[in-house]
């Protein structure tokens, strides 16, 4: 009996290890209560809300599917890079996800400014989806980048699987984080990402600063009805910070249906 028990324990431990690897360390869940700015290692998808403004654009920044949710991505990249170390490099792959330099500067107090995120950022000019995929894969497999923010337009299931595998087995010992910015028209495409988030402008009229409603659409290993799935993230003009200001308790209906209505597909 003791032998059987120990085998059982081993299996349980292995299953726990697999689950924790699949979920990623800090992915928000029922127990952790962590917000969208604290994602763990692995591949994460961020869908910019289907914006009427972005649809008609022809330039790379909009890619015909809304703008990339750069404000939230900056917040996630800053939080993740801060957790990694003082010199961890952040790679921005594809012009669609290149933020303005001012947005990368943090002003913690009245005096002085912290340019560390700007100084540790490298910008990769990928001309097409193939180059962006190769660059993200190469960066994940090396130890040279702590956080990778990439334009994920047009990636199929196999491509996202490749990135997820690269993140798990990277030279960084599986600590690589890849944030893919995907257009709203790809909201229902298949993907191997650990999480998928929808970022839409926050509609509340009280605030005089940009805010975004962030919704967790999908997470591997988590049923939709479990845990919080909606947050409000707001940027602070004075400091340049992006912070979670509200956890919305009410959970909407199935995400897929909502998104279909919103994008009009």
């Amino acid at each position: 009996m003791p032998k059987a028990l120990s085998i059982h324990d081993d299996r349980l431990a292995r299953a726990r290890a697999v689950l924790s690897r699949v979920h990623g360390g800090g992915v928000p869940g029922r127990s952790s209560g962590a917000g969208p700015l604290e994602v763990g290692p692995g591949l994460h998808e961020w869908i910019g809300g289907g914006s009427a403004w972005g649809e008609g654009g022809t330039e790379p920044s909009s890619a015909g599917g809304g703008f990339a949710p750069i404000g939230v991505l900056i917040g996630v990249a800053r939080a993740r890079a801060g957790a990694l170390g003082a010199d961890a490099r952040v790679l921005w792959i594809g012009r669609r996800v290149w933020p303005t330099p001012a947005a990368l500067v943090h002003r913690p107090g009245r005096c002085g400014e912290d340019r560390s995120l700007l100084e540790r950022s490298l910008f990769v000019d990928a001309h097409n989806a193939g180059e962006a995929l190769w660059a993200a894969d190469t960066a994940l497999r090396s130890c040279g980048a702590g956080v990778i923010v990439a334009d994920g337009s047009g990636l199929d299931m196999a491509s996202t699987r490749r990135l997820q595998l690269a993140a798990e087995a990277s030279g960084s010992g599986g600590a690589g984080v890849c944030l893919l910015a995907r257009p709203s028209r790809e909201i229902r495409s298949l993907s191997a990402a650990a999480t998928r988030w929808l970022v839409e402008p926050d509609r509340s009229d009280e605030e005089d600063r940009p805010g975004w409603a962030v919704r967790l659409l999908r997470r591997k290993g988590l049923r939709p009805e479990e845990g919080h799935t909606r947050w409000v993230v707001r940027s602070c003009h004075a400091t340049g910070d992006v912070r979670v200001v509200a956890v919305t308790a009410d959970r909407p209906g199935p995400p897929a249906r909502q998104c279909r209505a919103r994008t009009g597909s």
Binding site: A81, L84, G85, A86, D87, A88, R89, V90, L122, T138, A139, S142, C143, G144, A145, G146, V147, G171, S172, G173, A175, G176
Partner: peptide, 14 residues
């Protein structure tokens, strides 16, 4: 080095 911090790894990636 922590991930993304090793100057040699960063230079090689670039």
């Amino acid at each position: 080095h922590a991930i993304g911090e090793d100057p040699k790894a960063v230079a090689e990636l670039v």
